[in-house]
Nucleic acid binder design. Structure first.
Lengths: 332, 332
DNA sequence: TCGCTTCACTGATACGTTTCAGTGAACCGC
DNA sequence: GCGGTTCACTGAAACGTATCAGTGAAGCGA
């Protein structure tokens, strides 16, 4: 470990005969003559000087980083979302600090506060518990952009909200139109998690449509949901269709179906939610969200807010239906 | 934005009648009496004090964070790897700062240096260019653990190396045994990327096995590899098998095959590399790596190295073959 | 009782920047 | 030629912690 010490701003100041303050200003193009800027730039390049991000963060309170707090990175679609946001931020010369709440509201709280302490300039969050009180405190001290569900407390900078009621309605109506009555619903919700508005809506809509539904928590991993699905499919009164609240859960159902020697859609219909790229290959009929549009909107809003241009916008995403082959027409 | 100011160590010192230094020591359980520790803890809790991570990083040079520099997060298996490492680190009360080189050696270099400047305590890297010179400088100033290929320059703390030669041999021998002679090979390598040792080995092995191969760069995204595959499959002398250097690429081939109205394995055999969870559902025959073992090893090694317990270990991962249904036996 | 060690703690400085409140010079209109 | 601005820059004080080099007191053996 024989690394030579990094050059500091003081050394650049010495080399140019300026004060450290002048160098600091010059490198950020503020309040100094054009000629000085050039001189400082040259000296900095010569010494291999680059401002220390940690010292800068301590002094200025800003880091250039955006926090991304994901609901559950076990979910493949959320992985895509995280990767997309990371890339979009990089294109704007910002960096993402990605954390995973793993579906746990308590962890979500801890990590959110930790991100604030890390001086992220803004926070994009896909809330596990949109009704938690601490969001209010958080949104007071930094710009928060919520994706998916809007935060109930706190003055968020912006929201990219999914019209989940519409999505649920689309999915359930589609299944009903295909002749399904006995429908299992698999959600990613954990027992400890507060009820999501979408979950509540499922029950109301099922009632309205005359569906006989059975809502279950499918866990976070592929193995979890496969296990739950296996239990469901080996029962005597097996549902004719399964509506999965994420494509990842649907993949677990496919796994269980294959292991039981059954077939989709001949023995059971499967309906997804999200439209992950793999769903096209599997022929999964699913509710589609515009991933790219969501990424762009969230990044644009959080970057704008972190620069003080606070527009306070609410963008609503509308779902589409991707009809493939996992739901057979004409059952019963 | 009416947040009240955070408590500082000085206020805790004032409240307990101690010096800031004593409080700093007490909270880390060093050099102070048990009674004082309790008193300080109580006062800190009362004031809601928590040490500022940025100030701590500046003063101590450490952050508790581990950098994770991925080769290309477009790849689904690498996404799984990143998520797994993030979770494993969290279980050790460390946090991952995840960055994506997106297959670009220049970006890899920039990001690696940036992570060092962020004072990460260690770096896990899946190198795009293992032969780059800058790794030497980097490994001099912080513990680096390489995954996949070993770094050629620099004294890394540890390596979790894949036996890619063996993996390639397994895949190509399998295809030959199934009767394939005309084989396309799709690699994730970019034009600007230096040749990976594995790519070189492919050519040597193909020669040895008497295979007629056609090596092509398949890009990073699903759409990219689907495009390349489509070009390949519409030629007159279409290959009878495609060996993909990642499962993600294989998924792109499946997409192209479906769009052309062809079928796997009837019209073309497909062989993957990695064994992503989705490959089981698709029936993709592939070379398997022990993801969980890799994650655990890398995390254990980097955490140990960041704590100064430098063992300098080299762990070699051996591949397995997951035989499924994407390669039909008895061709020609 | 004396010198020595250990213990619990203090004061000061370092970490490397940003930023606030000037400061002197040049420039302006009148 | 004079008050007022603007310009380009400086000095010093943050930012909040860790850590080094003490320091006085207590404890100890002989």
């Amino acid at each position: 470990m024989a690394q030579r010490k990094r050059a500091t701003i003081r050394e650049v100041a010495q080399a140019t005969g300026l004060s450290p303050a002048a160098v600091s200003y010059a490198l950020r193009g503020m309040q100094v003559s054009e000629e000085t800027i050039q001189r400082v730039r040259r000296a900095a390049a010569e010494l291999g000087y680059e401002a220390d991000p940690i010292a800068r963060a301590l002094a200025s309170g800003r880091t250039g980083m955006i926090g991304l707090l994901c609901g559950s990175l076990e979910d493949l679609w959320q992985q895509s979302l995280a990767v997309g946001i990371g890339r979009a931020l990089r294109d704007k010369d910002r960096y993402a600090l990605i954390l995973d709440a793993a579906g746990d509201p308590a962890r979500e709280r801890t990590l959110a506060l930790q991100l604030r302490d890390q001086r992220v300039d803004g926070l994009i969050v896909q809330p596990v518990d949109p009704a938690a009180r601490f969001w209010a405190d958080l949104a007071d001290s930094l710009p928060v952009v919520a994706i998916g569900d809007a935060l109930l407390h706190g003055h968020t900078a912006a929201e990219v909200v999914f019209d989940n009621r519409r999505g649920v309605t689309m999915a359930l109506e589609y299944l009903r139109d295909k002749g399904h009555r006995r429908v299992a619903v698999l959600t990613p919700t954990r027992p400890s998690t507060p009820d999501r508005p979408a979950d509540v809506h499922v029950i109301a809509e099922a009632e309205r449509l005359g569906l006989d539904i059975d809502v279950r928590s499918a866990g976070q991993s592929l193995a979890d949901s496969a296990g739950v699905a296996a239990g469901l499919l080996t029962r005597a009164d097996r549902p004719t269709a399964v509506f999965c609240f994420s494509d990842s859960i649907a993949y677990g159902v496919y796994k269980a179906v294959a292991e039981l020697g059954l077939s989709v859609p001949d023995d059971v219909a499967v309906m997804g939610y999200d439209d992950h790229p793999m769903s096209e290959l599997l022929g999964l009929t699913t509710v589609n969200w515009d991933l790219d549009g969501i990424v762009r909107a969230a990044v644009r809003l959080v970057v704008a807010a972190s620069e003080g241009k606070t527009h306070r916008r609410r963008i609503v995403q509308e779902p589409g239906l991707r009809e493939r082959v996992s739901v057979r027409p004409g059952v019963i």
